[in-house]
Design a protein around this nucleic acid. Structure first.
Lengths: 195, 195
DNA sequence: CGTCTATTTGAATGTACTCAAAAGCGGTGG
DNA sequence: CCACCGCTTTTGAGTACATTCAAATAGACG
């Protein structure tokens, strides 16, 4: 099993060798190409993913056909695309796609349930994971409510260090909630102020 | 112990009588008056709350001194005010206050840790709780990105049925991210369209 | 190297904001 | 129980920030 995931697990729990083996018998490696889709709106999210290398994006498409980026998942992030769909079996409202060639681990809901039974410590792990995700998203809502576009871009760079130079900036514009055109102007203004 | 919390716990786990007793020996009832504060920015969030009756609001104050409502917590909701502060012991960036006379149960971080040890089933309970909170907040981010103010108001009414007629509407305006003045106009427009 | 996609630039438009003031409503005390 | 005071909501005028649409330029991938 890849080193990254072990380190990631150890951040919140102390799994035994045996528990790690249970995990690795239930979570499978997978690679996807750039632009390849992992989940489409209307399908059921069957997997939760851990990104070993590369980057994913979760997005929705509104009535007008415009895309909106909900989150990115670069290395060391967990991502399900649509957690509600994953746990409920309902249709997904989100899409999930690779922005770069990406290698990941995937675990199905069935296997996650088995994991919880055989290694209850993982219940704690995902509790903490979702706890952190909750805090992360509340921070973002706070920025959306209280900050103009520049402040929201700032939160993006702090949330995903280095990512701004890896991915097309139209996705960043979408994440912070402005048009690509406006984002372009904003960046020009920012570098004029403090270069 | 109040019926509401037992029902709430049973929604996700099946606690034994013994486990319920452990819980009720660690979570204490409390009442607060309208406008009373439960957490102030800069303090450490020492408790997590379950609302038995009444309603709380979590909010931040920006550089310009304006308040922004992050969430409401009417009956049957859990709320910590600032979860990051609660778990890390860092200073809170949020405020928490009662919008109505409210009765609640509070559990400290110390007691929650004891609860996890003595009744590990609660690890699962809070895992599911945060999972749902994560989905809830991601929905809201999606609405913020893809919906105009009317659509965000619609999500609010679906998230908190009946609450719109219980609390001052300036808080609703703040929650959906518009000024009270604009919200007032918007409501007038909406009832003109489909009364 | 060519083609397709992303970014920049500009002009016209609109949505939501600020500031100011009047009207309405509700809680509290006399 | 009523009247008053303060907070909340409404209304309106002028403004700003971000959008749409269009077109030119730059850049990246196969």
């Amino acid at each position: 099993m890849h080193e990254g995931i072990i380190e990631n697990l150890r951040r919140h729990i102390e799994p035994t060798e045996e528990e790690l083996e249970v995990f690795s018998s239930l979570a499978f490696p997978r690679t996807v190409r750039r632009k390849e889709s992992l989940l489409k709106e209307g399908d059921v999210a069957r997997h939760q993913f851990f990104v070993v290398e590369g980057c994913l994006r979760t997005y929705t498409i509104d009535q007008a056909g415009k895309e909106h980026v909900l989150m990115f998942a670069p290395e060391d992030w967990w991502c399900s695309g649509d957690l509600f769909s994953y746990f409920s079996g309902q249709k997904s409202v989100n899409n999930l796609e690779a922005l770069e060639a990406t290698s990941l681990l995937q675990i199905s809901k069935e296997n996650l349930d088995i994991l919880y039974l055989r290694a209850p410590k993982f219940e704690r792990f995902f509790r903490i994971l979702f706890q952190n995700a909750f805090v992360f998203h509340q921070n973002r809502i706070n920025a959306n409510l209280s900050q103009p576009a520049e402040g929201r871009y700032d939160l993006f760079t702090r949330s995903y260090p280095g990512l701004e130079s890896r991915i097309p900036q139209k996705y960043i514009a979408s994440y912070i909630g402005v048009t690509p055109e406006f984002f372009s102007q904003m960046k020009a203004n920012m570098s004029r102020k403090k270069p």
